[in-house]
Every structure is written in structure tokens, then in C-alpha cells.
Amino acid sequence: MATVAVLFLVVPVIGLLVRTPWSTLGDVLSRDTSIEALRLSLMCATLATAVSLVLGVPLAWVLARGDFPGRSLLRAAVTVPLVLPPVVGGVALFAALGRRGLVGRPLDEIFGITLPFTTAAVVVAETFVAMPFLVIAVEGALRGADRRYDEAAATLGASRWYTFRRVTLPLVAPGVAAGSVLCWARALGEFGATITFAGNFPGTTRTMPIEVYITLQQDPAAAVALSLVLLVVSVAVLAGLRERWLTTSA
């Protein structure tokens, strides 16, 4: 059964490589639309990861170290986007941040800000879907870290914030790195929530996965080529970070 599982996971990737139109690859990739979509994807995934780090690490700390009623409820709420179909996530974001939404209406009326169908909306959608990956990874790392180092820091006169920056965070750095990679990869591949909440506008919201989907309907060979790019980028980042961070975690 394990062999079947391995084949099941590996064969599609091989299929992608076999069907790649190597002769026209350069052509397809140098199209403006492809370059534009790739640039947008990389930028949005990176921004979404940055936002997830800024918001998600403190949240993970609260989940791991906090002692308050309803903590398990909070953890469940945080992990909802993990199990939610991305399209539903997109609709939910629309309901909350759309022009008529719960938060979107005051945002529009008071500040004149409308999120949907902008590049910012892409980042929001990707963050919504990907941040839980980071939170779960960092929370796990914090739970595994020895809290007595925090106590030692406190006896040396370090405030909580100083301890967090100089002791806690460096000790869980491998976990943060792993969480960031997962988060970035998830954001890079985001499709459902993005197309629902941000739409499909070339140059502003048409990310690589959407480009692949649309191209597939007109020019399957080109879609395979674009998919290959996503595959290469993901594997390269994963491999690069693994060398830098993940193996030195011990």
C-alpha cells in the first residue's frame, strides 16, 4: 500500500515533466502575462508570509503560553481556515471585507478603502488561508521549547518582551522557519479564495495558479509549462531553506 501511495504522489509530477513542451518552453515563459503573473505571485506570497509572521507569531505565543479560559476554543477558531474549502474562505472574506461587508462597509464609508479585486485583496486572501500553517508550526515549537530558559532570563532582569526577542524566539527559530516555508508555499499555490475575493485581473490579481487554470482551457501545453515553473520555484525555495535552517534545528 505504501508503494501505491508513493506512486500516487510521484506519478503526477513525472507526468508534468513528461508532458512539458521543452521546445516552446522559453516562448511560453517569456510572455508578458506569464512574467507578470509570476511576479505577482511571488510578491503576494512573500507579503502574505510577512503579514502571517507579524500577526501569527504573537498569536502562536498566546496559544502556547497563555493561560486563559477559552484557549482551546480560540485554537479551534484559528485552525478553521485549514479545513475550510478555499472558495468558502473567499466568500467569507467577501462577506466581511466586501463593500457591503461587516468591516468593509465602514472601511469604505469612513476611509474610502475598498479591498476586493485589488492586489491587497490577493494578500489578504492568501494570508487568511496560509497563516494557520505558520501559527500551528510555531505553536508546536513553542510548546516543545524549555520554558525554564524564560525563567532564567527573568531572573536576570529581562522583561517579557526582551525575553521573547532574545531568548524564546531564537530558540524556536527552526520552527518559525519551517512554518514560514509551509505558509509561503500554501500562499503561492492559493487559488480558490483568491479568485473569489480578489478576482482575475491581469497585472493586479491574476496570480500564477489562476494564470495556469485559464491557460489550460486555451493552450494545455502552455499550462503545463507554467505549472512546471511553479513546481521549480516551490522545490527550490524548500530546498534552499532546508539547507539554511531546517537541518540545523538540532
Binding site: D146, R148, Y149, A152, A153, A154, T155, L156, R160
Partner: peptide, 27 residues
């Protein structure tokens, strides 16, 4: 604890593993 000015030498020392000896002492 951080307001007490009470120094502790722990049984297993709890030196911060990511910092050098000097950085530990300067902490």
C-alpha cells in the same frame, strides 16, 4: 522575577544555547 534583582544559578545552569559565553554573561 525581573523586578527583584535576585540572581539564580540553576542546577543545570540554563545557559542560553544560542548565545556565546560572553553574550550569556552580558545578558
Amino acid at each position: 522575577p525581573d523586578e527583584r534583582q535576585v540572581g539564580v544559578v540553576f542546577q543545570d545552569y540554563l545557559l542560553f544555547p544560542h548565545l556565546t559565553a560572553r553574550e550569556n554573561v552580558a545578558f
